[in-house]
Design a protein around this nucleic acid. Structure first.
Length: 116
DNA sequence: ATAATGACGTCTC
DNA sequence: AGAGACGCCATTA
């Protein structure tokens, strides 16, 4: 059986060069809208042995979730710029570089107080 | 089976 | 705009 990680990797591998997707976006594509954290975890779990373009996965709004203190922050930014992705400050210009696939009306609930 | 963890997302202050 | 709090969930110990 294909594990959750495998599905995530498979989706991430389909992200075209020069485009980026958000963790939540990938989560939706693998059928787990609320497992964005797992997607990120899958990325961290991916090793050089696993051919996954992890750098094309960014946080919501084009934010690079990885701490700036960590070297990976620069690595990811560098790799993306290398592919033609532009930044506005420390954020990817999503309006131009977000992967179109998986985009939806985004039923935003998640509101804990929505029930109140 | 329970508890802890983590490269997220959204709301509030 | 930046920081804190809570929710969600698969994988591990």
């Amino acid at each position: 059986m294909e594990s959750f990680f495998e599905k995530v990797y498979r989706v991430v591998r389909t992200i075209p060069r020069g485009k980026v997707a958000t963790y939540g976006q990938v989560a939706r594509l693998v059928g787990r809208p609320h497992a964005a954290r797992m997607v990120g975890w899958a990325m961290s779990a991916s090793s050089p042995a696993r051919p996954v373009p992890w750098h094309r996965v960014v946080g919501a709004g084009g934010r690079l979730v990885i701490s700036k203190a960590v070297q990976y922050f620069q690595i990811q930014k560098g790799l993306l710029r290398q592919e033609g992705v532009e930044f506005r400050g420390d954020r990817v210009i999503m309006s131009q570089f977000q992967w179109e696939r998986g985009l939806r009306k985004a039923s935003r609930r998640c509101s804990k107080k929505a029930n109140a």
